[in-house]
Deep mutational scan, measured.
Amino acid sequence: MTYKLISNGKTLKGETTTEAVDAATAEKVFKQYANDNGVDGEWTYDDATKTFTVTE
Rank of each mutant, 00 (worst) to 15 (best):
M1H: 15
M1F: 14
M1N: 14
M1Y: 15
Y3Q: 02
Y3N: 03
Y3S: 02
Y3I: 02
Y3K: 01
Y3C: 03
K4H: 13
K4F: 13
K4Y: 15
K4L: 09
K4M: 08
L5E: 03
L5W: 04
L5C: 06
I6R: 05
S7H: 14
S7D: 04
N8W: 13
N8F: 14
G9F: 12
G9D: 05
G9W: 07
G9E: 04
K10S: 11
K10M: 12
K10D: 10
K10A: 12
K10C: 14
K10N: 11
T11I: 13
T11H: 12
T11R: 07
T11D: 09
T11P: 06
L12C: 12
L12G: 10
K13P: 12
K13N: 10
G14M: 14
G14I: 15
G14K: 12
G14Y: 14
E15K: 07
E15A: 08
E15H: 09
T16F: 15
T17M: 10
T18E: 04
T18C: 15
T18Y: 11
T18F: 11
E19M: 14
E19L: 14
A20D: 02
A20P: 01
V21Y: 11
V21L: 12
V21W: 12
V21G: 09
D22H: 03
D22W: 02
D22S: 07
D22E: 04
A23D: 04
A23R: 12
A23Q: 11
A23V: 11
A24Y: 10
T25G: 08
A26K: 00
E27C: 14
E27L: 15
E27S: 06
E27Q: 09
K28F: 08
K28P: 01
V29H: 12
V29T: 10
V29W: 14
F30E: 00
F30S: 00
K31I: 06
Q32C: 06
Q32V: 07
Q32T: 07
Q32I: 08
Y33T: 04
Y33Q: 04
Y33F: 13
A34C: 14
A34I: 07
A34Y: 06
A34K: 00
N35S: 15
N35M: 15
N35G: 09
N35D: 11
N35A: 15
D36A: 12
D36F: 08
D36C: 11
D36K: 10
N37W: 12
G38M: 06
V39N: 03
D40A: 12
D40H: 14
G41L: 04
G41Q: 03
G41I: 03
G41R: 01
E42W: 12
E42R: 08
W43A: 00
T44E: 10
T44C: 10
T44P: 00
T44H: 12
D46H: 05
D46V: 04
D46G: 00
D47C: 08
D47G: 08
D47N: 07
D47I: 08
A48N: 11
T49G: 04
T49V: 05
T49R: 05
K50M: 09
T51M: 03
T51V: 06
F52P: 01
F52H: 01
T53E: 05
T53H: 07
V54W: 03
V54I: 13
V54R: 00
V54M: 06
T55W: 12
T55C: 08
T55K: 06
E56N: 07
E56F: 09
E56M: 08
E56T: 09
